[in-house]
Structure formats: structure tokens, C-alpha cells
Write a protein that binds this DNA or RNA. Sequence first.
DNA 1: GTCAATGCAAATCGTTTGCATGAAC
DNA 2: GTTCATGCAAACGATTTGCATTGAC
Lengths: 145, 145
Amino acid sequence: MKENSEAIEELKKIVKQKGLKYTEQREIVLNILLHADEHLTAEEVYNQVKDHYPESNIGIATVYRALSFLEEVDLISSIAFGTDGKKYESNDKSHHDHLICTICGKIIEFFDKEIEDRQDRIAKENDFKITGHSMQLYGLCSSCK
Amino acid sequence: MKENSEAIEELKKIVKQKGLKYTEQREIVLNILLHADEHLTAEEVYNQVKDHYPESNIGIATVYRALSFLEEVDLISSIAFGTDGKKYESNDKSHHDHLICTICGKIIEFFDKEIEDRQDRIAKENDFKITGHSMQLYGLCSSCK
DNA sequence: GTCAATGCAAATCGTTTGCATGAAC
DNA sequence: GTTCATGCAAACGATTTGCATTGAC
């Protein structure tokens, strides 16, 4: 399974630019996150590797290393929630925030322009130059209420 | 150091009501969070216990157990700040969000009613019952710009 | 051929648990 | 005296690291 998305091209570029090696393992990990429709923990990524790419004898340590690397170069990002550990998602998705169920761990994404606007305003009021933000609403989802 | 805040009284009441024992350890842990002006990890709480109450030979396991208990009875709450893991704060403080300088680490607290309102609205739209939230804006403060 | 990346296993970190002891009631 | 909470150490799960080997360049 060869993919040719923008993100994969971007990865190739970054790796070359940094004088590092382009490996199948990093591509596989990125690819899985590109196709995931939910946030995945390192372990879930690892399991998907074993499911979808059984021929690639990839180790869990490599998954962790690839995830760190991809986050560092800003192709993916992570959010930490409660005890479930770090969860990753690819950055090719448009910006959004998260509603997180504290019982089942389900994550719903949302975007609200008005909140973004208020954030910019607050930053200005405090003489801050915003470089990023993270917002999570915690609660009980419809099935766990 | 004996404290007599509302929260301590509340703890005594809850413990009695549940037929449990009132222990110095639980009081100490709560007390530290009542006086902390920032969010503390379990380990930080533990270190403060050893600093401020050296005579009390409290174990890390007890700190964890006390924190779980206090959170369960809603005297404190925890949030996961990025990768830093779970951090606790007492519930006697008024609600606020954070502006965090990524250079010097300075934290400015703020509150914005409009954002809170939008959050409630979003929760309703997604059939979520909100129990808490955490929002951080990252950027450069006035001195670091 | 060089050097970064990998796989594996061991090590480490933060947190939890089992159990005998001690403290609250 | 009964029962819950504690301290300690061992156990645990998730993540990281050391090291010899492999693979990209």
C-alpha cells in the first residue's frame, strides 16, 4: 500500500532537509494516522501496523520513536487525557477542539469561530502573541450520561 | 500547622457521613492544594508534604490514594495539561483558563464569560453533560516577544 | 562505508495493589 | 475490638533507552 498524500511528500521533504533517513516505518505510522478517523494511542497505532502491514516486523519502540519524530516536525499532534495516555492525530485535518467523555474516552471534535475570535482578543488584551492553543471540554457523552 | 478553612470542614463532614476515618494525611494533602497557587502533580504534592510536614512520614501511595479520594468527593479536581500528566487543584478557587508563555513559562489566568457560554452551547449541541474543561493558549508574553 | 534507524530486551517512570501494621472510631 | 487507612515493597502498564544489527544514502 503506497500512499502519495501531501503529508507523505512533506515527510520526505523534511527528512531530506534534515539529512535523516526516509524509512518505511515512519511512513507507515504517518499513513495510519492519516487514515484514522479517531485519535489513536501509541499502542493502537502499533496494533494497526501489525494488522495492516503484517509483513513489516515493526517494534513498539519504533512506533514511539516515529510518533515523537512526527510530532516534533509537526505532521501530527497529541493530546493527553486522564489515564488513557497520549493520543495522536494527523495534522492534515483542519483545526478543531475536543469534547472528551470522561467515562468511555470517546472524543468528539468541534470548531467554533466565536471562541477562536475571543481567544485572539484575550491574547491581544494580555499582550500575548498566540502560537497555538488547546481546549478540551470534559464530560459525559450521550451514551454514558 | 492547623487549618480551619471551609474545605477542611467539608472534608470532615464527608468523611463522617461516609463512615470513614478522618486522617491527618488526607488533611495535609488537601491543605497543600488549598494553599498552592498552581496545579500540582502527585509527585509535587508528595514533595511538598516532605518539605512542609517533615514529621509526617507519609508515603507516595497515600498521596495518590488521598488525591483520588479528594477528587471523588469533589474537593479537588484534576486536569491533564499537555504531556505533563495529571495535575490537581483545589475546587475552592474560582474557575479560570490559562495563557502560557512558551519561552519563559509564565502563566496568566483569565476568565471569559462569552467563551464559557459558547462551550455550554457546544456541549448541548453534542448531547454532552459538561463536568469540566481546560483551555490553554500558548504563545509569547510581552517580555518574550 | 558511514551514520541514522531499527528491533529487541532491559530499564525506567508514574501509578496501583497486596499485605501486615497502626490509627480512628 | 472492629474496620479503615497507612507504609512499604512489589507489581504493573506505558514509555524510553542501550546496544548490536540493519538499511538508507
